[in-house]
Amino acid sequence: MENENLNTEITNSAGLRIDIISCVPRLLDSFFDHSILKRAKEAGHAEVVIHDLRDYSTHKQKQIDDYAFGGGAGMVLGIETIARCIRSLQNIRIYDEIIYMTPDGERFEQKVANRLSMSKNLMILCGHYKGIDERVREHFITKEISIGDYVLSGGELPAAVVSDAIIRLIPGVLNDETSALTDSFQDNLLAPPVYTRPADFEGWKVPEILLSGHEKKIAEWRLEQSIKRTQARRPDLLQ
Score class of each variant (00 low, 15 high):
216 K>D: 15
202 E>I: 05
105 G>V: 04
177 E>Q: 11
167 I>E: 11
222 R>G: 07
165 A>K: 13
140 F>A: 08
173 V>P: 09
203 G>W: 03
111 K>R: 12
138 E>F: 00
74 G>P: 02
97 E>F: 02
207 P>I: 10
12 N>F: 04
110 Q>D: 05
76 V>M: 06
156 E>D: 13
8 T>P: 00
24 V>Q: 14
107 R>L: 13
49 V>L: 12
52 D>M: 04
33 D>G: 06
93 R>Q: 15
206 V>N: 03
169 L>K: 14
61 Q>N: 12
89 L>D: 10
19 D>Q: 07
180 A>W: 09
26 R>W: 01
62 K>D: 08
78 G>D: 02
234 R>P: 02
168 R>G: 02
185 F>T: 01
191 A>V: 02
197 R>Q: 09
164 D>W: 01
203 G>L: 09
181 L>M: 05
146 S>R: 09
133 D>P: 07
205 K>I: 01
226 S>L: 04
37 L>I: 14
150 Y>M: 06
230 T>I: 01
98 I>R: 01
168 R>K: 00
97 E>P: 00
176 D>E: 14
75 M>I: 10
187 D>T: 04
150 Y>H: 11
148 G>V: 00
41 K>I: 03
99 I>F: 05
213 G>P: 01
155 G>C: 08
191 A>Y: 03
161 V>T: 14
3 N>F: 10
159 A>V: 07
207 P>G: 10
50 I>M: 09
13 S>V: 08
183 D>Y: 05
147 I>S: 08
131 G>S: 11
239 Q>R: 11
141 I>N: 07
104 D>K: 11
27 L>H: 10
207 P>C: 09
195 Y>F: 15
190 L>R: 00
174 L>R: 09
36 I>A: 08
154 G>T: 04
171 P>E: 06
69 F>D: 10
49 V>K: 15
146 S>I: 12
108 F>R: 05
1 M>I: 07
108 F>P: 07
48 V>T: 15
146 S>Y: 10
166 I>E: 05
58 T>P: 05
140 F>R: 00
62 K>N: 13
165 A>R: 08
39 R>L: 02
10 I>T: 14
80 E>C: 01
136 V>W: 04
209 I>K: 12
17 R>F: 00
71 G>Q: 12
165 A>V: 09
116 L>F: 10
27 L>A: 11
